[in-house]
């Protein structure tokens, strides 16, 4: 019985389809990460401004994105924007918007705390050495900040990839949906396919995320010294 199940994986282009579904997931998450990095840096700098209005607005933005389950935000954009403004967004676009906003909030907070945590004497001693402000930033401040930010940013990437699995619930054809389609198509020929298909998807996610999180861990250990 289980023989039939696992055969499904090797039939036709099934496995290739799964991989292309996984690629959809990766496209969404990597695009979101890219946006988050850029916008997050900007947000982080804005968050360090002493203006009370920006402080309140950014805080609300941050807390909302942190507290609300991402699936709720997906619903808000995918279903809500359509009715509210009549725009028809695809599941993928909605996902990229939602995850980019979430990622921007997280990155922004990281950047903000990285900027604050650089001890003032770093700025002072750079000036004492005769570096111009631009030089101080390029050679002293920014490298340190980048170092501090990289492991959490890589962590965010894995979280993003895992969260993208949610888009199956708003109809995007990603790896889980492809899996469902394959199982459905082979309902009579391979009734046990579900175990193998979902098992493979489980390990596909692991194979993608594990190396990335290990990388983050290694970098963190290296750069802590």
């Amino acid at each position: 019985m289980q023989d039939l199940g696992i055969k499904v994986l090797f039939e036709g282009s099934n496995f290739a389809r799964l991989l292309s579904g996984l690629w959809v997931t990766l496209e969404i998450s990597l695009a979101s990460v890219a946006f988050s990095l850029v916008l997050g840096v900007l947000l982080g700098m804005v968050m360090t401004l002493r203006n009370p209005i920006t402080k309140v607005l950014t805080k609300i933005f941050l807390e909302f994105n942190r507290l609300m389950p991402q699936l709720v935000s997906l619903f808000l954009v995918y279903f809500g924007l359509t009715t509210a403004f009549g725009i028809d967004l695809s599941g993928q676009t909605s996902a990229i918007i939602v995850f980019s906003l979430w990622g921007t909030a997280e990155m922004g907070d990281l950047v903000r705390s990285a900027l604050i945590s650089i001890p003032k004497h770093q700025y002072d001693s750079s000036a004492a050495l005769g570096l111009t402000k631009l030089q101080a930033y390029s050679y002293v401040i920014i490298p340190q900040t980048l170092r501090r930010l990289t492991p959490p940013a890589i962590n965010l990437t894995t979280r993003m990839i895992k969260t993208t699995s949610l888009v199956v619930l708003i109809g995007v054809v990603e790896v889980l949906k492809v899996g469902q389609q394959i199982i459905e198509a082979n309902r009579y020929t391979a009734p046990d396919a579900a175990l193998w298909i979902y098992g493979v998807i489980f390990f596909l996610y692991f194979i993608v995320c594990y190396p990335i999180s290990k990388l983050a861990g290694r970098l963190e250990k290296q750069w802590r010294n």
């Binding site: 889980l176 579900a194 098992g199």
Partner: peptide, 17 residues
């Protein structure tokens, strides 16, 4: 390193097999 959704699918749809 795996999403909860996939874990649930495995438990709910996969194990019965």
């Amino acid at each position: 390193n795996t999403p909860l959704l996939v874990q649930l699918f495995l438990l709910y749809f996969g194990l019965p097999k």
